[in-house]
Design a protein around this nucleic acid. Structure first.
Lengths: 113, 113
DNA sequence: TTGACATATGTCGATATCGGAATATGTTGG
DNA sequence: CCAACATATTCCGATATCGACATATGTCAA
């Protein structure tokens, strides 16, 4: 057997740094593909392909305006994400209560990379 | 050229469903590898490998107890995640304000998968 | 219609990744 | 030391994915 599907869920879509960059650019509002290409330094096909992935997952939506295609962030789709994270908030807080431990831990861990 | 590194950051570590399952299991507290193997239905080597990835990113820590190795969640490492998400909260809220639009949108979008 | 512009799609090579099976390392108790 | 157990590592084939390049599709303007 091999790898499981992959790019088909929000988690994987967001896992790619380039795609996060695109989402970041779209925070300010609707943008055409060309505008994104200019903002970031990526080839146009790349941007289009990444937009496709983001689109398939619903993280962005698209609207035609003349010969341009305006892509727009769909923040609602980040919800699964948010919900998943919140399940860990409690564990997080439990640790945070013991501030000393937390600080010691940060020190001990350092930056794993 | 080819794909960029990958498994080396929190986003990618969490992108894999199996790894999320492991994290879920660890929410309740420290567990040995064998216990995780039992809880989920994964082979022991798989679990060990995924734990390695999670460990390299700092999402779990490990402590030896006899011949067992107890893995523990490190929720603090989810912070980058949380911060990234919060950048989108505003965009999210802006949309939520217009409740009608939101509902219509949910309807229009359906579930992309 | 034609040509210019905007975007999408297809192909390709290099590499990463997953899961499975076998095996290596490490630890404990007798 | 040895056997049994717990976990880690290595090797493998199958497949996904990325980025680069070339090309197809689509839309406007004259």
């Amino acid at each position: 057997m091999a790898r499981s599907p992959a790019t088909s869920d929000v988690f994987n879509a967001v896992a790619e740094a380039r795609r996060r960059e695109i989402l970041d650019v779209l925070i300010t509002g609707e943008k055409a593909v060309g505008a994104i290409v200019d903002d970031l330094s990526m080839s146009q096909p790349q941007v289009s392909k990444h937009l496709r992935v983001l689109s398939e997952v619903g993280l962005v939506s698209c609207r035609a305006e003349g010969r341009h295609r305006l892509y727009r962030l769909e923040p609602a789709r980040l919800r699964p994400f948010h919900e998943w994270l919140s399940r860990y908030e409690q564990a997080w807080n439990d640790r945070m209560d013991r501030v000393d431990d937390y600080l010691i831990e940060l020190q001990r861990q350092g930056d794993p990379q």
